[in-house]
Simulated assay, not measured.
Amino acid sequence: MDIVSSILELPKQCRQAWEEALTTDLPQDWKINNIVVCGMGGSALGAHTLQVSGSVKVPMVINNNYFLPSFASEESLVVLASYSGNTEEVLSCAKDAKEKGCKIVGITSGGKLGEWIKLNNFPAYIFDPKFNSTKQPRMGIGYNIFGVSAIFHNLNLFNGNYAEDIMWNAINILEDNLEQIKTDAQDFAKKIAGKFPVIFASDYLVGNAHIFANQLNETAKTFSAYYSLPEANHHLLEGLKHPKIPTVAIFLGKHYPARILERFKITQEILEKKGWEVLSWSTDQEDQFAQCIQTLLFSSLVTAYLGLEYGEDTIGIPTVDYFKEKLN
């Protein structure tokens, strides 16, 4: 299956993960004061979306390291997320979490992490990624987002705005808008080809901006960056003079508070005066989770079409593979 066809199976990933992960057997008496999600690359991006959404009751951090943060304790939930199950940083954190007595849940398709979880009898959602023919974690984020969401739902970790009907609504809306998002993505890929893409977002879509930039790196083999507003207004605006390279700003979302929308408007005006091309994309849906999922599909398709425009291998990650081989 080609990469575009694989990406368009995102709704099936989401549906599979939500239905299956809801059946994960989890203790109901866990006292959880904070959450640490351990994952690298695509395996952590789903958690990033939930982290910035403000939907989780307790503090949550994403850990991209070999060891847990110092505050991790018996009252910490540690989510070990590794698509392949062989990510060495996550495996290292697994041992650290066990030593610290943390509450542990795994999300993986198997590998060494799957074996370790079964050996130690920890709860986990171990999925069969049958709707990700590319086998690349960044193309299987639906499993991560809805797997983590189902686990958090079962552990009563959401503030209440992430009920089951919101999840199903997001999946149904995604299915209804596949063709329109595909058309938009094709158009955007043509517009940003040959330029340095910089992604801007705010609030609950910052996780999507991060995902977009990562996908540009891995799928389109393109250098990229992302910024969140209002933070970027305090430093980036003075860094627009050098170097002189063709740059395109992509602003995600339009359903923000009025003050944020005003910041978007002024930032866009400044960028255009500095010679940047400015593009915007948003869904018509006001539901935040539905926006996140549709934006995920959009960024996945844009980067696929851009990579194909460049004649690149949009699935393989040979330089990352080379690095890992040298490291080992």
Rank of each mutant, 00 (worst) to 15 (best):
I3R: 01
V4R: 05
S6T: 11
I7H: 03
L8S: 00
L8W: 05
L10H: 06
C14W: 02
R15N: 09
A17G: 00
A17K: 01
E20P: 05
E20M: 11
L22F: 06
T24P: 02
D25G: 00
D29E: 14
K31M: 12
I35C: 00
V37Q: 01
C38I: 12
G42F: 04
S43F: 06
S43P: 04
T49C: 15
Q51R: 14
P59Q: 06
I62N: 02
N65Q: 12
Y66H: 11
L68A: 07
A72M: 10
S73H: 10
S73E: 14
V79A: 05
V79F: 00
L80K: 01
Y83A: 07
S84G: 07
T87A: 02
E89R: 03
V90D: 00
L91W: 10
C93S: 02
D96G: 05
K98F: 13
G101D: 00
C102Y: 01
G106N: 00
T108G: 00
S109L: 08
G111Y: 03
K112E: 04
W116E: 04
I117E: 04
L119A: 14
P123C: 05
Y125R: 02
F127D: 00
D128G: 02
S133N: 14
M139H: 13
I141Q: 04
Y143W: 04
N144H: 11
N144R: 04
F146C: 02
G147P: 06
I151F: 00
H153R: 13
L155S: 08
N156H: 14
F158A: 09
F158Y: 01
W168L: 14
N169Q: 13
I173R: 11
L174R: 02
E175I: 03
E175R: 08
D176E: 14
Q180S: 11
Q180E: 12
K182S: 12
A185L: 09
K191A: 05
I192G: 05
F196D: 05
V198D: 04
S202I: 04
S202Q: 05
D203M: 03
D203E: 14
G207S: 03
H210E: 14
I211C: 08
A213K: 15
Q215M: 07
E218A: 02
E218H: 07
T219A: 09
T219P: 04
K221F: 13
K221T: 08
S224D: 08
A225Q: 15
A225P: 03
Y226E: 06
Y226K: 09
H234G: 12
H235M: 07
H235R: 03
L237W: 00
L237V: 14
L240R: 05
K241L: 11
K244R: 15
I245A: 09
V248R: 03
I250V: 15
H255G: 01
A258G: 15
A258F: 07
R259V: 05
I260Q: 01
E262L: 09
I266T: 13
I270V: 06
K274N: 15
W276A: 13
V278A: 01
S280G: 14
W281N: 11
S282I: 03
E286L: 11
E286Y: 11
D287F: 09
Q291C: 10
Q294F: 09
T295R: 01
L296M: 12
L297M: 14
F298Y: 15
V302G: 01
E309R: 04
G311A: 09
E312Q: 13
P318K: 04
P318C: 10
T319Y: 15
F323C: 12
F323A: 12
K324H: 04
N328M: 08
N328R: 09
